[in-house]
């Protein structure tokens, strides 16, 4: 029982209680306003950026722009080779980075013996995520282009970007695996599952939502990368498409496109912006809109997938 009158005054005096609540509510209101303001700054920046691109690029945003190769005449120039290049490079990036990243993440989290070496590797993977992308470009130039002699190809570019996003995929894979409650693992082991079965049947599927988030972040970064691709020698002016992957005659499928020279959207934009003619600025803005839409499409697919995974799994 409280007897101290000072305490009774603050704990049980209705006026003090009402005042205390009111004061705290005011703070809450203040922070809600502050939150709104922060959100507004972030959103407004985005809206202004997109609106600016849209307004300037509007006259060019049509099918012809999408389906024409670049040209020295700004009216005729399009982004066909650029967006096809972007898509193909990202495709290679995904195919390379996702299995490697998830595999490495699973090994490090579930199988690797917990010792100083693991700590050392862990620290370095985290550091790798922060290495500037141009460094990866230099590595790729030395390794893929000069040693493996893959040339300035889509394969080289895809692998370079894969290296770039690999650390992000590995780190988020590990974090998602770690977030699965111990009870789930123990439940699986308790009915006689092996470690691999526990991981493959339970831990991995349940953590897919988190892993996909890592992949989204990685891909969004890769899609806009320019520096490492310029380093490995991406072309800035290319008028022909890579060879189609599907053919009319046997064996119907071809991987020759992997060896094609290429350009990507950000490089195409960069090329146009740096030209003296005013007209190319419009092309650049329009290409910017397309790049944004492309990023958005990739992201929303991934977000949808993540939503599906999250919805079906609840602990």
């Amino acid at each position: 029982m409280v007897r101290n009158p000072k305490l009774i005054a603050v704990l049980h005096n209705p006026i003090a209680i009402a005042e205390s609540i009111q004061q705290r509510k005011r703070w809450e209101q203040f922070f809600i306003l502050l939150g709104w303001f922060s959100l507004l700054v972030a959103l407004l920046t985005l809206v202004v950026l997109v609106a600016d691109l849209l307004i300037r690029g509007w006259p060019l945003l049509n099918l012809k722009f999408l389906l024409s190769p670049p040209s020295s005449d700004p009216e005729e120039a399009g982004i066909l080779t650029a967006w096809v290049g972007s898509l193909l490079v990202i495709l290679v990036t995904i195919v390379v980075a996702v299995p490697l990243g998830i595999g490495a993440g699973i090994y490090l989290e579930e199988y690797a013996p917990k010792n100083w070496l693991l700590d050392f590797i862990e620290i370095n993977i985290t550091n790798l995520a922060g290495v500037p992308s141009i460094i990866y470009g230099l590595l790729a130039l030395g390794f893929f282009v000069y040693i493996l002699k893959w040339g300035e190809s889509i394969l080289t570019a895809g692998c370079t970007l894969a290296l770039l996003i690999l650390p992000v995929v590995i780190v988020t894979t590990r974090e998602s695996l770690r977030a699965i409650p111990v009870g789930i693992r123990e439940g699986a082991y308790s009915v006689g599952a092996s470690r691999w079965q526990t991981i493959f049947d339970h831990v991995l599927p349940y953590s897919m939502g988190g892993i996909l988030t890592g992949i989204i972040v990685g891909i969004s970064r890769a899609i806009g990368e320019t520096a490492p691709l310029i380093t490995i020698g991406a072309l800035t002016f290319i008028t022909f498409l890579p060879e189609a992957p599907i053919k009319g005659e046997f064996p119907y499928i071809s991987f020759n496109w992997l060896w094609s020279p290429f350009t990507v959207l950000p490089i195409q934009m960069f090329n146009w912006v740096s030209r003296p003619q005013e007209a190319f600025q419009i092309n650049s803005a329009a290409a910017g809109v397309v790049l944004l839409v492309l990023t958005l499409l990739v992201n929303s697919t991934a977000i949808y997938l993540r939503y599906r995974f999250r919805k079906s799994i609840k602990f």
Partner: peptide, 9 residues
Amino acid sequence: VRGIKDRAL
């Protein structure tokens, strides 16, 4: 959370 800071209290 009620704003009491008095150490003795």
